[in-house]
Design a protein around this nucleic acid. Structure first.
Length: 668
RNA sequence: GCCCCAAUAGCUCAGUGGUAGAGCGCAGUCUUGGUAAGACUGAGGUCCCGGGAUCGAUUCCCGGUUGGGGCUCCA
């Protein structure tokens, strides 16, 4: 005699016997790993309540993958504590493409340990362990976690428990406290963790499509003042093929890595003698960079920007006025102390001065504005500079060209009247997008950093915030791009819009930033004379487009995997004669191209023909021109393109035109 | 800055308590006839730097430099 309840299953009303679990309901769907009950993810083993709205969640959909990875993290932690009984548990959430788990252990994990852990995990998985959910009260949770100091802290015991670390939400954070037990075939609880869940019904769903990827240090709760734990990163996928595809994706990213390609293609380097995070650009890299700069420069001039040049170094007063020495000092290089004189006793007879390398260009541009009185007729005034700045980045943060200690910003500062703000912001964002598209980037996302409700944090008038925010929002909407608003992320003086791009293999990069700033004009007491003769204060817009030219070049290297479009390619054309007798014939063709401004060269070395083809191919040269008997007879050349395709006996003049046109049109 | 790992020829990397190797690249010679590696010969090394224990260190230990993976931070 059983009671029935009605529920909504996948949107359709249906009835069930009371007490039915998800396991029973979805018994014939092997890929279902959890269920969504009234919008929340539940373990299948839970009983479905009356009137619930229920949907199955498959292992291969995003939320199912999260669960798979979270459960794999539990299995890993179980394996670690099996092998290292003294290891204390930190947190173990799922992340993009995988998961991690933090441990407090005596000594860090070795590569050998990782293999052992993986093995132990496989053993556990093969045992068909299940995950059991237990709802407990604080007291019971405390009792069960008595040996886990970090878990106790999450439960609110100990210090610092009030500030929740990111990721801690997977441990606690629901309405109730739950502990998950790993239960073996005999029904015995073999491992437990404080955890919100949900989990897979059975560990065997992990199959063998998982891997422990690497070990790294990580601070407890992400705070430097906290103890450093050992973090193990892992990944898990529904099938072995998915895991293979993931590893292939990583391998592809490695092949495209700008540090690797930068060396292989002889673009740039970081000489140890120069110093950490400081790049030098070799001839080929300088071509790519130079083309980028040249093109951007032309576009800027067309858009009404004026280029300026400013020094790399300045007396401290400038950065005191700008406020950088107050708020940004930690990121600045230590000062150079100049001009101090002392007498024989070592007493200072002439006071010295501190000079700083500039961490930003804005103060310099402001000085240009402030050099003389300005009229409202001069605004907007758009000052642009490829300005090299130096920042004292912490050594551990440096990374290839993307995070360095000296880099060149394609920086611009726009001085505008308040009534011009909205229009100018619109123009700037449109300009940024249009220029980035010239470089073959298409996949953009915008991020609006706005103020929040805490009024006292923000300076400036209501009207100013209103119009600046509205301008940014309008332009975001009009762009048709995906955008998110982040309240509270604005600088204290103004909102900003950041632009992120996704490259050819799906990685996201933060590039351009447009920031509204009435604060620096205030600090430097900037003015212009308005139409009515009154003195007014301009508003500044900071804008970097590539962000850092070096970093942007690196992004392009990775985006194109080193195979630059012809207009950016260090070598655009290589002529390869089929055999030596055709050297002179081909040399003439190359000469014609050079006269048209094409970066073309003749390969007249002693390698044999196929070897020369291979070499050109490895250098990713866009056009290989080949000439042999058939070509010479008909006053033609043959194309070999980067993809291996070819086109034979193209008349020389046509070939030249085609190459020149491809470069001019910035085609691939 | 903190934790871990690494550093050997121009590059990628083997290797060793008794001062060192491969492939590619480079140079030379002989070659060169149609789309990803012709053959041979050769040059090239302060085994990152400094200190220590050792009869002896590129190898072991300590410190530093640079790079890498993370944490944190960010263009």
């Amino acid at each position: 005699m059983s009671e029935h309840i009605s529920i909504t299953l996948n949107g359709a009303p249906t009835t069930l016997e009371a007490g039915t679990t998800g396991t029973a309901l979805f018994a014939d769907s092997a890929s279902t790993v959890v269920m969504r009950v009234d919008g929340e993810l539940w373990d299948l083993a839970r009983q479905i309540p009356a009137d619930a709205e229920v949907q199955p969640v498959s292992i291969s959909e995003p939320e199912g993958l999260d669960v798979l990875r979270h459960s794999t993290a539990h299995v890993m932690a179980q394996a670690v504590q099996q092998l290292f009984p003294d290891a204390k548990l930190g947190i173990g959430p799922y992340i993009t493409d995988g998961f991690y788990f933090d441990f407090d252990v005596e000594s860090p994990f070795t590569p050998d340990d990782l293999k052992k852990i993986e093995k132990a995990m496989q053993k556990i998985i093969n045992q068909n362990q299940t995950f059991e959910r237990e709802v407990v009260d604080l007291q019971e949770a405390t009792r069960q976690m008595a040996d886990e100091p970090y878990k106790l802290e999450l439960l609110g015991h100990g210090q610092g428990a009030d500030s929740m670390a990111e990721g801690a939400g997977v441990e606690v954070g629901g309405d109730v406290i739950t502990v998950y037990h790993n239960v073996d075939r005999t029904g015995e609880r073999v491992w437990s963790d404080l955890c919100r869940g949900p989990h897979l019904p059975n560990a065997k769903l992990i199959t063998n499509a998982f891997a422990v990827m690497r070990a790294a240090g990580a601070y407890w709760r992400g705070q430097e003042s906290n103890p450093q734990l050992q973090r193990l990163y892992g990944t898990a996928w529904p099938t072995k093929d998915d895991l293979k595809a993931y590893k292939e994706r990583l391998a592809e990213a490695e092949r495209r890595d700008h540090r690797r390609l930068g060396k292989e293609l002889d673009l740039f380097s970081f000489p140890e003698e120069v110093g950490s995070g400081l790049s030098v650009w070799h001839p080929k890299g300088a071509v790519v960079r130079g083309e980028m700069e040249q093109h951007a420069r032309r576009r800027h001039l067309e858009a009404g920007y004026s280029y300026v040049y400013t020094p790399h170094i300045s007396k401290s007063d400038l950065f005191a006025t700008s406020g950088h020495l107050g708020t940004y000092a930690e990121d600045m290089w230590p000062p150079i102390h100049m001009d101090e004189e002392r007498d024989e006793q070592g007493q200072v007879t002439k006071q010295g001065q501190d000079y700083y390398l500039k961490p930003m260009n804005c103060p310099m541009h402001i000085l240009i504005y402030a050099e003389r009185g300005r009229s409202y007729r001069e605004l907007p005034m758009r000052l642009a500079e490829n300005g090299t700045v130096y920042r004292n980045e912490r050594s551990g943060t440096l990374h290839g060209l993307t995070r360095v200690r000296g880099f060149t910003q394609d920086d611009a500062h726009l001085f505008v009247r308040e009534d011009q703000l909205e229009e100018e912001i619109t123009k700037v964002v449109d300009f940024v997008l249009s220029l980035l598209r010239d470089f073959g980037l298409e996949d953009f996302e915008l991020e609006l950093s706005l103020r929040d409700e805490q009024q006292e944090k923000w300076i400036g008038s209501e009207q100013y915030w209103e119009s600046a925010t509205q301008a940014l929002r309008n332009v975001a909407v009009a762009s048709g791009l995906k955008y998110t608003e982040i309240p509270g992320e604005a600088a204290f003086y103004g909102p900003k819009i950041d632009l992120k791009i996704t490259d050819a293999i799906g990685r996201k990069w933060q590039l351009s930033t447009v920031q509204v700033d009435p604060n620096l004009p205030e600090r430097f007491d900037l003015e212009y004379t308005a139409a009515d003769g009154s003195r007014q204060r301009p508003i500044m817009i900071h804008r970097a487009l590539f962000g850092s030219i070096e970093r942007f070049a690196a992004i392009l290297v990775e985006h194109y995997a080193g195979a630059f479009p012809a207009w950016l390619a260090p070598v655009q054309v290589r002529g390869i004669p089929v055999a030596e007798p055709f050297n002179d014939y081909l040399a003439e063709v190359i000469e014609k191209l050079k006269r048209r401004g094409v970066r073309a060269e003749l390969e007249d070395g002693t390698d044999r023909f196929p070897k020369k083809i291979r070499t050109a191919s490895k250098e990713k040269i866009p056009f290989v021109l080949i000439a042999g008997g058939d070509d010479a007879e008909s006053d033609a050349v043959s194309f070999r393109f980067r993809d291996g395709s070819q086109e034979n006996q193209v008349p020389v003049d046509e070939a030249v035109e085609r190459i020149v046109r491809t470069i001019e049109d910035r085609e691939v």
